[in-house]
Simulated scan of single mutants.
Amino acid sequence: MAAELKQLRENGGLNTIQAARRLGMSPATLNRSETGRRMATVAEVSALLAIYGVTGPERRRIMNMAEEHAIDGWWEANRRTTLLYALAQFEQQATAITAYAPMIIPGLLQTPDYARNIIQQEPFSEEEVERRVAMRLGRQNVLARTPTLRYHAILDEAALRRPFGGRYAMADQVRWIIDAVKVGRATVTVIPFKHGGYEASSSFSVLEFPRLPRLVYVEAAEASGFLDASEDTDGGPRRIGKMMKLALNSADSVDFMSKVVADHERS
């Protein structure tokens, strides 16, 4: 695949800088894709073929190769990056993401203040904190892809009640979630305390792709990582199905969150 991409660029009469500029990536990143040190995503290959003017049977051949390459190597290629970078890459490729959060608001729905307060719980330098906040906020751009991406967050009431950053900051955070729902960027359902205990787990997200296998990202204090074996990834949707039976519907969840905002503001 790497050699094919390089040959197609040269056939199109473009140098690395010109092609990278048209695609919106750095020349160094494109160079790594052409030398096999990085796996180009299916979306990137599709864009490059358009830039290089590749059409018809040749385009179909290259796209089939890219998709097969992605299926065979998607996990190993991303294992070499940090978990957060890999997660951001997978979120960009996903067509559906369902997240469960028992204690902390999912990263794709966090305000800057909330994200900063969460990240500051770790002994990071101020510079590293701001870098991680910026990366987390950058990941949220995927929510602008609606209806291409369907994002659904299932929140335990505890995640809405715990006032990270103080009660006013938390009121802003919950209001931020309500706004995301109202503009159609996300679907959010809440499991209220009144249901008592239920089979729960650490925070996790189930990511679905058009042609790639389902992936589950598990986030815990002790360790975080991806599950890609079918016996592991099949369990995510089953747990989500059970939680959905306990959760309020979307409209009732918005009403519930509005009451939580009021509680934070007067507490």
Results as ranks from 00 to 15, higher is better:
Gln93Phe: 01
Ala3Trp: 07
Phe164Ala: 04
Leu108Val: 10
Arg116Ala: 10
Glu34Asn: 06
Gly73Cys: 08
Ala43Lys: 14
Gln93Tyr: 01
Ala262Met: 13
Lys259Asn: 12
Arg21Gln: 14
Thr41Glu: 05
Val183Lys: 15
Pro213Ala: 01
Ser258Pro: 01
Gln89Gly: 06
Glu265Thr: 11
Pro123Trp: 08
Tyr168His: 13
Gln89Phe: 05
Glu10Leu: 11
His152Pro: 05
Asp234Cys: 02
Arg150Trp: 04
Ile118Arg: 03
Met25Gly: 01
Ala158Lys: 10
Gly166Ile: 10
Met243Glu: 01
Met25Thr: 10
Leu160Val: 06
Arg167Lys: 15
Glu231Pro: 01
Met65Phe: 07
Glu128Met: 08
Leu30Ala: 03
Ala70Trp: 00
Tyr85Arg: 14
Trp75Asn: 04
Thr81Ile: 05
Gly165Glu: 10
Phe226Val: 03
Glu128Asn: 11
Met103Gln: 13
Arg79Met: 09
Leu137Asp: 10
Gly236Val: 00
Val216Met: 12
Arg131Gln: 15
Glu265Ser: 11
Arg79Ile: 07
Ala94Leu: 00
Arg266Thr: 13
Gly138Leu: 09
Asp172Asn: 15
Gln140Cys: 05
Arg167Cys: 09
Arg167Val: 05
Met244Trp: 10
Arg80Asp: 03
Glu76Gly: 03
Lys245Trp: 02
Val133Cys: 06
Met65His: 09
Leu108Trp: 07
Glu199Val: 14
Leu155His: 01
Ser224Met: 02
Leu160Phe: 03
Leu83Ala: 04
Val129Leu: 05
Ser46Pro: 00
Val261Ser: 14
Met39Val: 04
Phe124Val: 05
Leu248Asn: 12
Gly107Val: 00
Arg59Val: 00
Arg9Asp: 02
Gly53Val: 07
Leu227Cys: 08
Glu126Pro: 04
Arg80Asn: 07
Asp234Tyr: 00
Phe256Thr: 09
Arg38Cys: 02
Leu248Ala: 03
Leu49Thr: 08
Thr29Ala: 11
Glu231Lys: 12
Asn141Ile: 03
Leu108Asp: 01
Gln18Tyr: 04
Ser253Thr: 10
Pro147His: 13
Asp156His: 12
Phe90Leu: 14
Arg161Val: 08
Phe226Ala: 02
Arg79Pro: 03
Ala86Pro: 00
Trp75Glu: 05
Ser33Lys: 12
Val42Asp: 00
Thr187Glu: 06
Gly225Ala: 11
Glu76Asp: 14
Ala180Pro: 02
Ile191Glu: 01
Thr98Glu: 13
Val133Thr: 05
Met65Glu: 10
Ser26Gly: 11
Asp156Glu: 15
Arg238Leu: 11
Ile240Asn: 02
Phe90Gln: 02
Asn15Cys: 10
Thr35Glu: 09
Ile17Lys: 15
Ile97Met: 12
Asn11Asp: 15
Leu143Met: 10
Arg150Phe: 05
Lys242Ile: 09
Ala88His: 07
Ala251Phe: 15
Arg161Leu: 11
Arg238Tyr: 07
Glu231Ile: 08
